[in-house]
Design a protein around this nucleic acid. Sequence first.
DNA 1: TCCTTATGTACAA
DNA 2: TGTACCTAAGGAC
Length: 269
Amino acid sequence: MPEGHTIHRLAEDYEARFAGGIAQVTSPQGKFADAAALLDGTELDSADAHGKHLFLHFGAEDWIHIHLGLFGKVTFGDAPAPPPTDTVRLRLANPTAYVDLRGPTTCALITDDEKQAIHDRLGPDPLRPDADPSTAYHRIARSRTTIAALLMDQKIIAGVGNVYRAEVLFRHGIDPYRTGKDLTRAEWDAIWTDLVDLMREGVRNNRIDTVRPEHTPEAMARPPRVDDHGGEVYVYRRAHLPCHICGDEIRTADLAARNLFWCPRCQQP
DNA sequence: TCCTTATGTACAA
DNA sequence: TGTACCTAAGGAC
């Protein structure tokens, strides 16, 4: 599930359940055991998210840096915590709740400076209040790379993943193979504004829904989705199915080792 | 029970 | 461009 909205939601949920209190910190799987021992019994004071990176603040200088990658998952539950399975990389537990982290690409103890270096190499995040879309457009407008690839480049814009990429391009009728150079400022501003709205709703609902009210299954008297990615979408993982709007077959292609989905009629070059 | 796939990224060649 | 890494679910047998 991990696109930016997931990570921001996790930051909220970690804070809601653990901030301001002492936590038991363990690493049943073992790879984070040394750091867990250092943090065990200390207080989590805040959580932060930038793009797909999650940061948990313990004490004055220590942060746990978490990146879920493709497989990472986080599970919250109420106390008492069940015995952890042997894939739990990090468990926090307090008298009322526990949270398990499994399969992350990254789970490491870092300093303030190291955290800052991560912020510095990430592009603006539509979910962060300090984000400036014009810095992203500046790079896009000079690039001969496809807009589909640019949207996935975390240095350009942080937090967009394969689902939001496919869906936002569909919502704006933009062919994924158009280059950054061809994108107007107005088009970019519209994409950005839309991403802010979509991703905020993603945080709220903890899932990605991109279908406008007038195109929902109920509104169009069509069958509801069968996909299990967790939300209602126009094109993501709908290869060879009819487009909700024009009925043409949704296309798919490999682009930079990821699956791209788009409607060739609704998204003209 | 095995194989494929996945909302991601980093590094080698 | 290809491959490695981490995990779990779903589908094919």
